[in-house]
């Protein structure tokens, strides 16, 4: 047994070195795989029985267990966040409803990437960068990218919804209630009645947009409200004062005509005084060019 341990230790060093270099060495992995299959501590508590993590850290079982535990939690939180996102996709309410899930998920990832195990080996190396695929990292990155492009952080303060956002949601609901109330009858009535609440909402939105405190939830809510206001209920402004605009602009367009005409008629035409050059007289004078050619 002593011989066996030392043998696998040597192999381990070899294998590990290859992993560190980031390449998969088939020749080194094959013999050690054979040995590993027989290892007694392999299939017991591991969450993914087929995972042969132990091959990397054969002497630190505790450490591996810890990492696998983290992996397990990561999976659970990932699942709950994804399902939350999907269920809040339309209408978009992901920032309002999933921020706690995201915070948990983020915390988990931070745990994995920062927690140090014994022997200077962290779970980060083991779980995140151990192979070409870097599955966990990419999963994390995918969700994180979604979160960032949604700009949810601008609606959150201290990991909970900010006051402005809550206020916006409140106003938004008011507008919607108003729309619902009048949408049965004539739309023109709706346009008059809901104008104030809509306008407050619109101004609030523009303000938030100036302060860069917009997230996808707010944008989407505003978009749909604007759509129903302008397109469904036809409340947007119409051109009503064509006449004055046309009058003013045709007056302006008329001015240059007067200007040029009066200049043409009244301004004295600029004449150029010619002067005649001193030339030597000769039979080949240029005056004869015309003759030559004609």
């Amino acid at each position: 047994m002593g011989f066996f341990t030392s043998y696998s230790c040597v192999l381990f060093v070899f294998f590990c070195g290859n992993l560190m270099l980031g390449e998969i060495s088939v020749h080194a992995a094959e013999p050690s795989g054979d040995e590993d299959l027989k290892a007694p501590w392999l299939n017991e508590d591991s969450y993914f029985p087929s995972l042969r993590l132990s091959s990397s850290f054969p002497e630190d079982v505790e450490m591996i267990d810890h990492c696998l535990k983290l992996l397990h939690d990561f999976g659970q939180r990932y699942t709950s966040l994804s399902s939350c996102l999907v269920s809040n996709a339309r209408p978009v309410k992901m920032c309002q409803n999933c921020y706690s899930g995201y915070n948990n998920f983020l915390e988990m990832y931070t745990n994995i990437s920062t927690q140090m195990g014994s022997g200077n080996k962290s779970c980060e190396e083991l779980l995140l960068h151990a192979d070409r695929l870097m599955l966990l990292y990419n999963l994390y990155k995918g969700l994180n990218d979604i979160w960032e492009s949604a700009e949810c952080t601008s609606c959150l303060t201290n990991k909970s919804m900010s006051n402005t956002t809550l206020y916006f949601i409140d106003r938004h609901n008011q507008s919607l209630t108003c729309f619902e109330k009048y949408s049965q009858g004539n739309y023109s009535e709706l346009c008059v009645e809901c104008k104030t609440s809509y306008k407050v909402l619109n101004d609030l939105y523009s303000n938030m947009s100036k302060n860069k405190s917009l997230c996808i939830d707010v944008e989407d809510a505003m978009n749909s409200t604007r759509y129903s206001w302008s397109k469904v209920y036809n409340c947007s402004l119409t051109r009503e004062e064509n006449v004055p605009v046309i009058a003013v602009s045709s007056f302006m367009l008329f001015l240059p005509l007067i200007f040029y005409l009066s200049n043409y008629l009244h301004s004295e035409q600029k004449k150029r005084k010619l002067m005649h050059p001193k030339r030597a007289k000769s039979s080949h004078s240029l005056m004869n060019i015309q003759d030559k050619y004609s």
Partner: peptide, 25 residues
Amino acid sequence: RYVHRRCLQVMEAMLVAAVSATVSF
């Protein structure tokens, strides 16, 4: 030939500016 006086040139430039704005508007 015709717009060679200085104040006329200034006026012309102003007119062009006014018409540019009008047309754009």
